[in-house]
Design a protein around this nucleic acid. Sequence first.
DNA 1: CACTATTGTTATATGAAATAACAAACGCGT
DNA 2: ACGCGTTTGTTATTTCATATAACAATAGTG
Lengths: 152, 152
Amino acid sequence: MSTDKLSRPGSHLLNAESTSGIVGYRLRRAQLSVFQRFLAVFDELDLRPAEYAMLLLIADNPGRRQNEIADALGIKHANFVGLVQGFDGRGLIERRPAAGDRRAKALYLTPEGSAFLARAHEVHDRLEASMVAALGGESERDILLGLLDRLS
Amino acid sequence: MSTDKLSRPGSHLLNAESTSGIVGYRLRRAQLSVFQRFLAVFDELDLRPAEYAMLLLIADNPGRRQNEIADALGIKHANFVGLVQGFDGRGLIERRPAAGDRRAKALYLTPEGSAFLARAHEVHDRLEASMVAALGGESERDILLGLLDRLS
DNA sequence: CACTATTGTTATATGAAATAACAAACGCGT
DNA sequence: ACGCGTTTGTTATTTCATATAACAATAGTG
């Protein structure tokens, strides 16, 4: 599963003038490219982009209910169940009954989860650094993030 | 199917510090948001982002073979067949036997296809203008496109 | 001419995301 | 305390995009 072939589209041959000015198109291309690299780098950790974001969010907000985390990530509750069960099964997170509501489950990182996230964080830092380098520097990265936010 | 609810994720409530600095995450968010708007605006034309790009590419490169267009768009040949058949069925494109190769099919826009694309182009121009406005101006748009390319 | 590669195609598998229905628990109003 | 709509987490199902496999017809090459 490592080092997938990266199907580089669009690159040559055809006149792509008309698509070149389209924000949405270029956005999608860049996003796909970045995700491809993410998947390649995180292959050994068996961690997908959305899952990494999920762990980060739980680490930042321990004890929040499952649905709160799902909402913050923009994931439907039903689809979030599988993610939670997966990480629970891997021993990386813990579902504890929430205080004051016997329906709700509060999410926490286990010690193993914290350790795992630390490793993931290192891997991601390297990836992020390579992207900053591609962008030309920290300031360019900040400019990009600012512009992206205005589109969201 | 019109005016879908736009599930705005992430917005409030939780501490999202850790995800805020991640290029890939913000990229995905922006891309989703832009595509949502695209889908809403193009709802009446029954045209998806990839389909619009496809028509533009055929308009720019009339007579190219099916697989060339598919490659340029980064779409697998097998999956492109359905798209082509769809537009052929709508009378917007035409598949003609390619000169010199009886296997290949050369793609052209029909007159109806050109008219349709012209309408789509108008709709898209308005969408693009609104995004440029959100970004703060033409120059910001160009900066964004430049940065996105460096990531691709 | 024999063999391999390419073109378009069908059928199928995989994976993400949306929807529907549900039981358990909550909380509100009376 | 009761009844009733709502929320939480869950399962099952659907839809949709994309990936893979196999195939017939044609092309090109040694």
